[in-house]
Design a protein around this nucleic acid. Sequence first.
DNA 1: ACGCCTTTGAAGAGC
DNA 2: GCTCTTCAAAGGCGT
Length: 567
Amino acid sequence: MPQLNGGGGDDLGANDEMISFKDEGEQEEKISENVSAERDLDDVKSSLVNESESSSDSEVRKEPDSESYEKARDYFSEALRRQQDGGFFKSPHYPGYPFLMIPDLTNPYLSNGSLSPSARTYLQMKWPLLDVPGSAGLKDSRSPTPGHLSNKVPVVQHAHHVHPLTPLITYSNEHFSPGTPPSHLSPEILDPKTGIPRTPHPSELSPYYPLSPGAVGSIAHPLGWLMPQQGQPMYSIPPGGFRHPYPALAMNASMSSLVSSRFSPHMVTPPPHSLHQTGIPHPAIVSPAIKQEPSGDMSPTMHAKSPVPPKKEEDKKPHIKKPLNAFMLYMKEMRAKVVAECTLKESAAINQILGRRWHSLSREEQAKYYELARKERQLHSQLYPGWSARDNYGKRKKRKRDNKPDSKPEGERSKKQCVQYLPSEKMCDSPASSHGSMLDSPATPSAALASPAAPAATHSEQAQPLSLTTKPEGRMHHHFSLPGKASGSTSSSTSSSSSSSSQPISIPVGTSAGSQPTTPILTRPIPFTSLHPSMLSPPSPFHQAALHSHHALFQSQPLSLVTKQTE
DNA sequence: ACGCCTTTGAAGAGC
DNA sequence: GCTCTTCAAAGGCGT
């Protein structure tokens, strides 16, 4: 139904994709009302972000090897996203966002990977934009106001300057063509000092790349708040250097050779072999011998396309990753923000939060991700026509949670099946969601807000990330169902089988499905230090003042409150 | 070092 | 057509 993006629905064949939020119903639009709250939240977050930066910085540095290269880049991009995320939920301002799914020279699907998709995205776009003076409301690009930058307050970007989903445009190589910046973006290249649009210099077009310490130090870095330390690049710098504005020129041999073919500023002379038959540079073809996946394996489908002789097939197979779905894209985008807000590290917990946030997104916002994911799939199919998701089966040699619905009683499954991070999540969620201005979710009673640590979040709720929404029906019910499978029954499909089966339905302790067990099972509790009431959704202005106190409170709160058992 | 955890969505296989 | 499984990201944690 939701051909939400009316105009853009070119080949929006993904009708089914929209189904997921079909039942999201009406509650979500309210998010847009919190734009101003978000603005304030930035201030709050800035402190939290700073708080988490020091630790994350060390993380980055501990992986200098080439394999971590992408990781570092991703990290950096996430850090950038943090800065950007301040305006993310303002995305209602981006209804007509043009998705720039231009085939990328790099290959985000190769696990050995080239530049991080998201990182690439930020290349010439983000940093110049960061020079746009903070307060979005001002929209005054002529007052650099270095003060706010040095103050490490995330710059609230004007919606017009960069779309919040920009980092999701992961496969566009536009950003690597300084000579041909995206038409819609080129005007946004602002002079860091004047804020006046200007013709970007190549060296400035890739501000994403780590600046030389000197350069960073000489200029009040717009991203100072996310720069771990003065002049310290956010992410690990390959031993080879990586200080040149064009990393390809300074990186180690393998990477540079890889990147050079992909990041040629003008792409004038891409190596012939790098071009896919579709005209799209084929990353997998580009560097079969240059940069292979450490484990190096090339799917048979790749052989068909790759000019590289099939010799050493097993060794040369790059692992072509699945295209990211909408939620995955969203996760990559928002993870950093959640981490920053919650000082939370465990992905399992973060993902739960993100799952809730995902459902709290407005239709438009979700639609953007769906659209983006759809285009990713299109691009992926173009890049790898013969690729099948099946090709990756078995690559992960883990076989988990093969919970035959009836093979084992619920409680007999591994205890980890019952791991619940949601109590904490709930606590983060409660304040915002319980507030009238937010998603007045019936599932988040004010009691939860009053006592974040209290197990107000019923277990059934925990098993239902969607409970954040106002829709009592829909998936919510499905999650109540026993693993046997009422859940998958919905034609809706979205979270049908997989989520229901994977969900820790964990009907606990003597409670039937649908009842309200008050005992969150938290075998691996999240430290309270990781919790923050603003985690799940932007806090309303009313909560602004309370955020810090909440945070402080959480830090001092014992976890026992969460794990309290009621039976 | 490896796998699990967690989330949603997509895709494939099996019935 | 429906159900189930696997994988995609991510990073802490357990073994």
